[in-house]
Each structure stands twice: as C-alpha cells, then as structure tokens.
Computed example of a mutant assay.
Amino acid sequence: MKASSGFAPAKINLSLHVTGQRADGYHLLDSLVVFADVGDRLTFQPDSKLGIDVSGPFSQGVPDDSRNSVWQAAQAVGWSGRIAIEKNLPNGAGIGGGSADAAAFLRYFAQGDVAIDSEIALRLGADVPVCLSELPQRMRGIGENIAAVAGLPKLHMVLVNPRVALPTPAVFKALQVRENAPMETLPVEAGEEAVFNWLSEQRNDLETPAIAVQPVICSVLAALADARINRMSGSGATCFGLYATANEAAQAAARITHDFPEWWVIATTTVASRPS
C-alpha cells in the first residue's frame, strides 16, 4: 500500500463580515477567502488501524487521538491508516489549522471518484468546506454557502502571528454588534487596482473583539502599517499585510522578524483564480 501526501494551505480571510446570528447560536458570515503557498503537510498510509503522528514546529499541543479533526474526518468516512501531520502553521491562529488539515484528508479520500459529503465537511468545522479547494472563494452562511470567485489575482502578503492563544468562542463572546452589512460585489473584472481599492473598504468584524481579548494584535497591525492593506484573518490572532510585489513582502517580513524575533512571520503568495 503506497503512501500519499497532501497539502493543507493557510486560509486567509481577506474580509470577514458578521451578518447575523441564528437561533441556534451559529453566526452568519460573509467572507472572501484565499489560500497561501505555505501550510501543513500530511502523509496518508492505509492500514488496519487508525493512528496519527504529529511533528513540525507547531506540533506541541496538537492531539494525536480522536480530538484531532483529521482523526474525526477519517472516522466519518470509515477510513483507517497512519496519518502523519507536519504542523507548519500556528494553532488556533485564524488561518485554517485543523480545518485545513481535515480538508486535506477529505481531498485525499475523494481521489478516484469518491464524492465528498458536504454535510460531513461542515460537521467537522465551519471552515472545512471552504478549505476543500485552494481557489479563492466567497463563503457565506455558517460556512456551507461556498462560491468560486473568478478573476482574483495572486496577492503578495506577509503573515504575522504573535504566538498567543486566541480561542474563537472568546472572540465571538466579545463581539458587540452581530448584524452588519454584507460584502459588496467584488469588481474583479476591473483589474488589480480596483481589487485593492475594494478590499480597503471591507473589514473583519472580529478584529475589534479579538483585540479586546488579545491587545497585542494592535502591535501586529502596527508592524504591518506599511502594507497597502493590513487586517486580521479569521478570528485571529494572525494578521496579514498585502504588498505590491513579492520583494516588498520579503523586505517587510525581514524587518518584522528583526524587530519581533519571537513572532511567527512569513512572506507568501496566494493562489489566483483560474482563468474563466
């Protein structure tokens, strides 16, 4: 039985609007999601018994049992074997993490005309459905309403995480306004400059409550102040800065690493939409 590999790219919420809350407590979102060329790496080896091995710079604290989202994904589809996860992304950082890993397993399992059950994906986590593809997408509802976004160019960015814990429930608990305006229509056909202008007018409604829980996010955003756009991703604490070129992003990453050596900092490029 040959082992297969998978990649779980970092998920970046370029915008995240909280548009309401359902009676069951789930929040309604409207978000533009892209994926970067950095992420976790996984290896799958079919076997008679399910097991997980975790390694990498962010392996500490990652469960290797039924608490792991990849384990849960494998159980949900009745697969057994050894799964090796190389954790290269910070945990609980607003950039996919366990959801991206679970989606990577589901993509592996779906090879050979096996359809991915969208309900299973959503049960594993609100971000799992959007992480099933590496292409830019608009995510709405509680994560189940996914639509591809055409014409979005690749973007050069710096990701910065101050290595602090930021549980998502704590951020939503600190959210004061839960019914906000959705995103406007993305003007992708108007060119890259129009995309930047549009993004500058969008927001992340979780940024303010996240700062209330972890004020260091203000320092992260300040470190990215030279970017064309700087914003928090997801429920944090990772923030991104968008730059005009890869060279500018690399220079910014080097500067921030020098000034804040304890932070996780990386320059990356996002995946563009496929031509229509």
Score class of each variant (00 low, 15 high):
residue 244 A to T: 09
residue 170 A to K: 13
residue 31 S to Y: 04
residue 110 A to C: 10
residue 186 L to D: 00
residue 183 M to D: 09
residue 137 Q to F: 00
residue 40 D to T: 12
residue 44 F to L: 10
residue 15 S to I: 05
residue 167 P to G: 10
residue 268 T to M: 03
residue 24 D to M: 11
residue 275 P to M: 14
residue 268 T to W: 00
residue 128 V to L: 03
residue 39 G to D: 03
residue 67 R to T: 12
residue 264 W to Q: 06
residue 46 P to M: 11
residue 211 I to G: 05
residue 28 L to G: 03
residue 219 S to H: 11
residue 141 G to M: 12
residue 7 F to Y: 14
residue 81 G to Q: 05
residue 198 W to K: 08
residue 236 G to Y: 02
residue 258 H to S: 15
residue 222 A to E: 15
residue 198 W to E: 09
residue 8 A to L: 05
residue 101 D to T: 09
residue 26 Y to D: 05
residue 251 Q to L: 14
residue 249 A to E: 05
residue 65 D to M: 07
residue 4 S to D: 14
residue 59 S to M: 08
residue 25 G to S: 08
residue 243 Y to L: 10
residue 230 N to K: 08
residue 168 T to G: 07
residue 55 S to N: 12
residue 163 R to A: 04
residue 59 S to Y: 01
residue 44 F to T: 07
residue 97 G to L: 01
residue 236 G to I: 06
residue 241 G to K: 04
residue 151 G to S: 09
residue 128 V to D: 01
residue 226 D to P: 00
residue 171 V to Q: 04
residue 76 A to E: 07
residue 36 A to D: 06
residue 153 P to G: 09
residue 75 Q to Y: 03
residue 66 S to T: 14
residue 222 A to T: 12
residue 161 N to D: 12
residue 226 D to M: 03
residue 214 Q to V: 11
residue 82 R to T: 14
residue 232 M to I: 07
residue 64 D to K: 14
residue 188 V to N: 04
residue 99 S to E: 02
residue 249 A to Q: 03
residue 96 G to P: 05
residue 130 V to I: 15
residue 155 L to I: 15
residue 33 V to D: 00
residue 156 H to Q: 13
residue 201 E to P: 01
residue 184 E to N: 12
residue 90 P to L: 09
residue 265 V to W: 01
residue 152 L to W: 08
residue 202 Q to N: 10
residue 146 I to C: 06
residue 66 S to L: 10
residue 275 P to C: 11
residue 212 A to W: 02
residue 219 S to Q: 14
residue 118 S to E: 15
residue 105 F to N: 06
residue 197 N to S: 14
residue 273 S to M: 07
residue 130 V to S: 11
residue 220 V to F: 04
residue 271 V to D: 01
residue 163 R to V: 07
residue 216 V to H: 03
residue 172 F to T: 08
residue 166 L to F: 04
residue 223 A to C: 05
residue 153 P to T: 10
residue 106 L to E: 02
residue 43 T to I: 13
residue 227 A to K: 01
residue 97 G to I: 01
residue 115 A to K: 15
residue 229 I to C: 02
residue 230 N to Y: 04
residue 79 W to D: 13
residue 272 A to K: 10
residue 9 P to L: 08
residue 181 A to F: 06
residue 216 V to K: 06
residue 196 F to N: 05
residue 54 V to K: 00
residue 162 P to V: 08
residue 120 I to N: 03
residue 221 L to A: 10
residue 4 S to P: 02
residue 10 A to W: 02
residue 263 W to Y: 05
residue 55 S to H: 07
residue 81 G to N: 08
residue 164 V to M: 04
residue 127 D to M: 10
residue 256 I to V: 13
residue 10 A to V: 11
residue 70 V to Y: 00
residue 30 D to T: 11
residue 75 Q to E: 15
residue 153 P to I: 07
residue 179 E to G: 03
residue 56 G to M: 09
residue 114 V to A: 15
residue 133 S to D: 13
residue 194 A to E: 12
residue 174 A to F: 04
residue 11 K to G: 06
residue 154 K to H: 12
residue 186 L to W: 01
residue 40 D to S: 08
residue 225 A to T: 11
residue 78 G to A: 11
